[in-house]
Design a protein around this nucleic acid. Structure first.
Lengths: 109, 109
DNA sequence: CCGATACGTTAGCCATTGCTAACGTATTTT
DNA sequence: AAAATACGTTAGCAATGGCTAACGTATCGG
């Protein structure tokens, strides 16, 4: 059972998700937008399906892949949880710092 | 030159970033919170530093690692770019769907 | 000066990953 | 019925990744 974030982070799969965002699409036309083989894309899609980010609707000899909203929400949540680990405090420092303020002293007194 | 999102997505490194969010920390105390060796953690930290997410402040025989706000902002941006690819439309459907509304017809008319 | 501490570094190992090529299968076309 | 299309599946490969163990190197304490 692969890690959701890791699966989604891989560059080819990120692009696949982005492409599917504009609507469902069959495998071959998807694969044509990449430089790797159709088989490679198929395997990426199966992995994305395994973690519940996409699903396939079979119609004739085509399999139309589309995003699974619930899965994408789970991904969004995971990302949110990551950022929520007080990282925002740090980033707040960054913007303050970007506004030509003196650098804040090291945390952890 | 490794991919920023992929580097940040790996579970151990995610946790490292989260731990560093609460303040700078030396390698050994960091490593003690994991089950893997100190060497493994050191290598993860070096990789995180390579992509600009963390940096080390040397003091005596310790190396205090901390988040690099600019790097974390770049990461945040990358994530935002990913979600911005019209994925939000899909997610909007999801919430609507979660409110017991009939499923929206397949996109791509 | 010597041992201990805190690291980075390296080599080597094993598992995983992403890939291609070839094949199998269902569906459509002719 | 045969060829073509659109897939998934499998095997097998090269590369990568994460890990440990061992070592090298500063720095600190005695």
């Amino acid at each position: 059972m692969p890690d959701l974030l890791e699966v989604a982070a891989e560059p080819t799969r990120r692009r696949l998700l982005a492409l599917l965002a504009s609507g469902e699409q069959a495998v071959t036309p998807l694969a044509e937008q990449f430089e790797v083989s159709r088989s490679a894309i198929s395997q990426h899609l199966l992995l994305l399906a395994e973690v519940g980010l996409v699903e396939a609707r079979k119609e004739g000899r085509n399999r139309y892949y589309s995003l699974v909203p619930e899965g994408m929400d789970r991904l969004r949540e995971q990302v949110a949880v990551f950022w929520a680990r007080e990282l925002d405090v740090l980033v707040a420092d960054a913007t303050a710092l970007a506004q030509s303020a003196p650098p804040s002293p090291p945390r952890h007194p």
